[in-house]
Simulated assay, not measured.
Amino acid sequence: MSGKPQFEKEADEDGRFVRQESRFRELVMERPEAGRYHLYVSLACPWASRTAIVRQIMGLEELLPMTVVDPIRDDKGWRFTDEEPDPVNGFAYLKEAYLLTDPSFDDRVTVPVLFDIQNNRIVNNESAEIIRMLNAWAPNCHDLYPPDLRTAIDEVNDRVYNSVNNGVYRAGFATSQHAYEEAFDELFQTLDWLDDRLATNRYLLGDEITEADWRLFVTLVRFDAVYVGHFKCNRRRIADYDHLSGYLRDLYQEPGIADTVDFDHIKRHYYMTHPELNPTRIVPKGPELDLWASHDRDRLELRRGTAA
């Protein structure tokens, strides 16, 4: 792996990180036949992880097969491994799927990818849209985007995406002090706002888990292990928040969610893939995280039930 920055095209003249737009945006809202599509993810990547989470909680494992790529992304992008090879075309790198779909593609290859096996092309590589599709494919499961909450969910998602999900990247990949401090301040203002919100709500929109919770979770679960040090987001840890810390443990302890979180993949990816931030590529052994500790978040629902 060279020392070439992997986000060099995604910066403005003031040193702000500007994330590239997803290229493939076709929507498939009707439930397909089993095996029509294939999902490519990295367990290191928060954007891909939220699709893996929704696939799992919606019980779509048989409908939608999934392949996990190697957590170490090099100059050629995400690669497949001998332990988990590409079962669709036998590709060595995910970039081959991009070039098969669009031979002129010359941007950064990202995960997740929803691939159409029948037509041998990428359908969508935007995680926000993929999770909406997967939610629609399981109409008998708990709706993560219920009609009566959609406006509120969209409002929370918008702030969380800009300030938290992408905010940690805006801080970590800033190339000027001003750009870094701007992202840093917005990040912690929003984390404080979320902590206050969760003082009286078990989840972001009340007593039921929604899409907004899983979109936030994937950043929170990586925060203390990676973003505090690697991305210089070090005002405080999630463990230091009164309510966010228990909320994180509450979501982590939902059935099957821990299986989608791989701290080995997460830490090796971040610390070994960004040479401009960690030229030695030394992966830290810590921190110790006890995400199975009691969260006591259900007391919020009990308190409202007693008051009623």
Rank of each mutant, 00 (worst) to 15 (best):
Trp214Gly: 00
Leu302Gln: 14
Lys95Gly: 13
Tyr227His: 13
Arg281Pro: 02
Ile131Phe: 05
Asp224Val: 09
Glu26Ser: 10
Asp74Thr: 11
Ser42Tyr: 07
Trp47Gln: 08
Lys4His: 07
Thr110Cys: 11
Lys9Arg: 14
Ala11His: 15
Leu134Pro: 02
Leu39Cys: 11
Tyr203His: 13
Tyr98Asp: 05
Leu191Pro: 03
Cys45Pro: 09
Asp224Cys: 11
Ser245Trp: 14
Lys76Ile: 00
Arg236Ser: 09
Pro32Glu: 12
Pro279Glu: 11
Gly305Leu: 15
Asp12Ile: 10
Leu187Asn: 08
Arg25Ser: 07
Thr110Glu: 00
Asn166Phe: 01
Ala174Val: 06
Pro32Ser: 11
Asn119Lys: 14
Val218Phe: 08
Ser127Pro: 02
Val113His: 04
Gln20Lys: 13
Gly167Thr: 05
Trp214Ala: 00
Asp148Phe: 07
Thr51Pro: 01
Asp192Asn: 12
Pro85Asp: 04
Arg222Asn: 12
Arg132Ala: 09
Trp137His: 07
Asp262Val: 01
Met1Gln: 10
Asp75Lys: 13
Val88Pro: 06
His274Lys: 02
Asp12Cys: 08
Asn120Leu: 03
Leu251Phe: 05
Asn135Ile: 03
Ser104Leu: 08
Glu211Met: 13
His265Asp: 15
Ala97Val: 02
Leu99Tyr: 05
Gly15His: 10
Gln20Tyr: 01
Glu61Val: 07
Asp242Ile: 08
Gln253Leu: 04
Pro71His: 11
Thr210Ala: 10
Tyr161Phe: 14
Ala52Glu: 12
Ser294Asn: 12
Asp185Ile: 13
Glu182Tyr: 08
Ile209Ala: 11
Thr101Phe: 06
Thr151Tyr: 11
Gly90Pro: 05
Asn140Ala: 11
Asn119His: 13
Thr151Asn: 11
Val168Ala: 13
Ala138Gln: 04
Asp185Leu: 10
Arg197Gln: 12
Leu248Thr: 15
Asn125Ala: 05
Phe263Pro: 07
